[in-house]
Simulated assay, not measured.
Amino acid sequence: MTEKETQRATLTHINESGQANMVDVSNKQVTYRQACATGYVAMKADTLKMIANAEHAKGDVFSVARIAGIQGAKKCADLIPLCHPLMLSKVQVDFAIDEVNNRVLITSVCKLSGQTGVEMEALTAVSVAALTLFDMCKAVDPNMVIGEIKVMNKQGGKSADWQHGDE
């Protein structure tokens, strides 16, 4: 097998001809699936304090970013071309203040019973929540940084459960 053929065999969104391909999951069993993703928005200490104390002129930044993150997970298939539309049973978006590093930590958990995983939905929830937080605060702190968005773990499906850092 050539190197190109080996890559195509492992990249499920590319068919034998090298073209984009939506994976056929119709023969997969419906199983419980869950994914957790994290990320952060780093900012000035004053900005973090303003958000933490709910003193932002635009209102409750966390409530708006939470709703945006949930909506982002629900719209994932509209944003990522080859993602399957999923019937999510739970999307949770949480925030934690990290005063030591002047950042807001964002965590999302997505759940469903279905034929494909929810990693992309969890990543999208964190990404959209971070973008919303940035958008609401950019007037007072345009140098914020969004970082380290990653899947922390996944459960369910035919492959074994997985955690970030596993080989």
Rank of each mutant, 00 (worst) to 15 (best):
K90T: 14
K4C: 00
T124R: 01
S89D: 11
I70K: 05
L105M: 13
L123H: 02
A35P: 04
T116H: 09
A139Q: 05
V109L: 15
I51A: 14
L79R: 04
V61E: 08
I97K: 00
I146C: 10
K4R: 11
S26E: 10
V109M: 12
H56I: 02
A125I: 08
A125D: 11
A20Q: 06
A20V: 14
I97P: 05
V93C: 13
I67D: 06
D46W: 04
M144Y: 02
L48F: 10
K111A: 04
K74G: 07
S127L: 10
C36I: 14
A54T: 10
E5M: 03
V126W: 10
T124D: 07
G18I: 05
E119V: 04
A45G: 00
V41C: 02
C76Y: 04
A77V: 08
V151H: 01
A9E: 04
N21I: 00
V41N: 03
Y40G: 00
L131S: 12
V140D: 08
A20T: 07
T31K: 00
A96S: 12
V118T: 14
C110H: 09
C36E: 15
Q92I: 14
G18M: 06
A54V: 13
S127F: 07
R66D: 07
M50D: 09
C137L: 14
C110D: 10
M87I: 14
L88N: 00
V140E: 11
A139I: 06
K111R: 13
R66Y: 09
V151R: 01
M144D: 01
G72M: 12
A160F: 00
N101E: 15
L105H: 05
K75M: 12
L112I: 04
L131R: 10
M87Q: 13
T6C: 01
K28L: 08
E99V: 12
A160P: 01
T38K: 04
E55D: 15
D166W: 02
L86K: 10
N53P: 00
D98V: 03
T2W: 00
M22A: 09
V118Q: 05
L133P: 00
K154R: 07
Q71W: 01
I70Y: 03
N143T: 13
E167Q: 12
L131V: 10
M22V: 14
N143V: 08
G147S: 06
V61W: 04
I51Y: 03
D166H: 07
G69R: 01
W162M: 06
L79E: 11
M144C: 12
M50W: 04
L133S: 09
K90R: 15
E99K: 12
D166C: 02
N101I: 04
I106A: 06
T47Y: 04
S63I: 07
D60G: 01
